[in-house]
C-alpha cells in the first residue's frame, strides 16, 4: 500500500472514519499478522496480539505523525510492543525466565533457521546488504532478539553466552548496521 495513501487513511481513522480503518486493515493485516506470528509462534497468541494492536491503532490514530516514519512502521511497532508485552507476561506467569520451549533452543540458534524468510522484499535491499556486513555472532543475536522476541537473559540462557557478551554483540551489531544504513541511504 502506498505510503501517502496510508497517511490519508490514518488521518481519516483519527477522525473516526470506520471505512478508512477497514481499508487500512485490509492493506496491512497480512503484514502485521506475519509480524505477530513470527514473535508469538502460535495462531491463538498471534491473533490475540493483533486484535489488541488494531484496537490501539484505532484509538491512537491521532498520535501518528510523520516523525514516526511510515504508517506501516508505526503500526508494526505497536504490534511488536504488544507481542513483547505478551511474551514477558507469559514468562512471568509460567515462572520462567525464557519465553520459548527448551526444545526450540537448537532450532533458534541455528543460523540458517533464524535467517530472514523473505529476502526478496523490494524495500529491504539496503538492509539486506548491511546485514551481510555483520559477523555471524552479531547477526544471530540480533535475529534472536528481533525475530524471536528474546531478552538478553534469554539469549544468554539459550546460547550459553555470558550476558555482557550478548549485550555487547547486539549493540555492536546494531551500531554497525546503523552506520552501514546511513551510508547506503545518504
Amino acid at each position: 500500500m502506498e505510503i501517502e495513501h496510508q497517511r490519508r487513511l490514518i488521518r481519516a481513522v483519527a477522525r473516526g472514519e470506520r471505512q478508512a480503518f477497514e481499508e487500512l486493515y485490509e492493506g496491512s493485516g497480512s503484514r502485521l499478522y506475519g509480524v505477530a506470528m513470527q514473535l508469538m509462534r502460535t495462531p491463538e497468541r498471534a491473533e490475540e496480539a493483533l486484535q489488541e494492536a488494531y484496537v490501539k491503532i484505532w484509538h491512537n490514530a491521532g498520535e501518528y505523525h510523520e516523525g514516526r516514519g511510515s504508517v506501516m512502521t508505526w503500526m508494526s511497532s505497536i504490534v511488536r510492543y504488544r507481542c513483547i508485552d505478551m511474551l514477558r507476561a507469559i514468562s512471568r506467569k509460567e515462572g520462567r525466565q525464557d519465553s520459548i520451549d527448551q526444545d526450540d533452543t537448537l532450532e533458534l540458534v541455528a543460523p540458517e533457521l533464524v535467517s530472514p524468510l523473505n529476502p526478496e522484499a523490494p524495500d529491504t535491499a539496503a538492509l539486506t546488504h548491511c546485514m551481510g556486513t555483520l559477523n555471524q555472532n552479531d547477526l544471530q543475536f540480533i535475529h534472536l532478539a528481533y525475530y524471536q522476541g528474546l531478552t538478553h537473559a534469554e539469549i544468554q540462557a539459550h546460547t550459553d553466552t555470558p550476558l555482557g557478551t550478548v549485550k555487547s554483540w547486539i549493540r555492536r551489531g546494531l551500531q554497525r548496521l546503523k552506520g552501514c544504513l546511513n551510508n547506503e541511504l545518504s
Binding site: 503484514r31 506475519g34 514516526r68 506501516m72 522484499a121 524495500d123 525475530y147 546503523k178
Partner: peptide, 14 residues
C-alpha cells in the same frame, strides 16, 4: 523503529 522496520518487511506475509 524506522531503522529496523525493514526487518519486518523481510517476514512472509500471512
Amino acid at each position: 523503529e524506522q531503522m529496523l522496520a525493514p526487518l519486518n518487511e523481510r517476514l512472509p506475509l500471512q
